[in-house]
C-alpha cells in the first residue's frame, strides 16, 4: 500500500488519531499519533486488519523530550512491505501505557528495556522486571535526560 492509501485506511480505523505526512528528509514513513488509551485497540486493529497486516514490530523505543515522553513503535508488514511509525505521548511523571507483548511477542523484551531505561510502566505486561540493569536500579531510569551518575558518567 502506498502512503496515501495507508492514510485513508488508518483514518477510517482511528478517526481521532493525527496522521503526519512523511517528512521530506528521512525514511519516508507516515507517522500516526495516538492517545495512550487508544493504543491497545488501535494496535489490535493494525495487526488484524487484512489490508494492513502489520505483523512485524521491528523497533520499539522511547524518547525523553524533557517535558514529556514519547513511545515510538515502528511497524511493517511482511506481506505488503509497508511501514508506519506510531507515536504515543506519555506523561513524564507517571508514564503508563498498555503493553502490546501479546500482539507482537518481541515487545516483551523491548518493553522491559524501555521500562528500566525510561521508567515507562507497561500495564498488563506479563513479566515487567529489570532485564539489562542489575538489581537495585529500579526507578533510576538511566536513559532519561536528567539522569546524573557522577561516578560512571563522563561528560564531554
Amino acid at each position: 500500500m502506498t502512503n496515501e492509501e495507508l492514510k485513508i485506511k488508518l483514518a477510517e480505523i482511528l478517526p481521532t488519531a493525527t496522521i503526519e505526512e512523511a517528512a521530506e528528509i528521512g525514511p519516508g514513513w507516515i507517522t500516526v499519533n495516538v492517545e495512550p488509551i487508544e493504543w491497545l485497540a488501535f494496535a489490535q486493529q493494525l495487526r488484524k486488519e487484512e489490508a494492513l497486516h502489520f505483523n512485524f514490530l521491528f523497533c520499539l523505543t522511547c524518547i525523553d523530550w524533557k517535558t514529556h515522553l514519547t513511545m515510538v513503535y515502528h511497524l511493517r508488514s511482511t506481506i505488503f512491505h509497508h511501514n508506519i511509525v506510531v507515536k504515543a505521548k506519555l506523561d513524564r511523571d507517571k508514564p503508563a501505557i498498555e503493553t502490546v507483548s501479546h500482539i507482537w511477542r518481541t515487545a516483551e523484551f523491548h518493553e522491559r528495556e524501555v521500562y528500566e531505561m525510561f521508567g515507562v510502566d507497561f500495564l498488563n505486561h506479563p513479566d515487567l522486571r529489570l532485564l539489562i540493569l542489575p538489581d537495585g536500579w529500579e526507578g533510576k531510569n538511566p536513559m532519561r535526560k536528567d539522569f546524573e551518575d557522577p561516578v560512571n558518567m563522563i561528560r564531554l
Binding site: 521491528f58 524518547i63 515502528h74
Partner: peptide
C-alpha cells in the same frame, strides 16, 4: 527530524534510529 536506516548484518536486521534536534550531536539514538 527523524531518520531511520536498516541494513542486513550477519545476524539480521540492524536498524539505526536517529532523532535530531538540529544540533551537532544526536538527541536520541536507538
Amino acid at each position: 527530524g527523524e531518520f531511520y536506516s536498516r541494513v542486513e548484518t550477519a545476524r539480521g536486521e540492524l536498524g539505526v534510529y536517529i532523532v535530531s534536534e538540529g544540533a551537532t550531536t544526536p538527541y536520541r539514538i536507538k
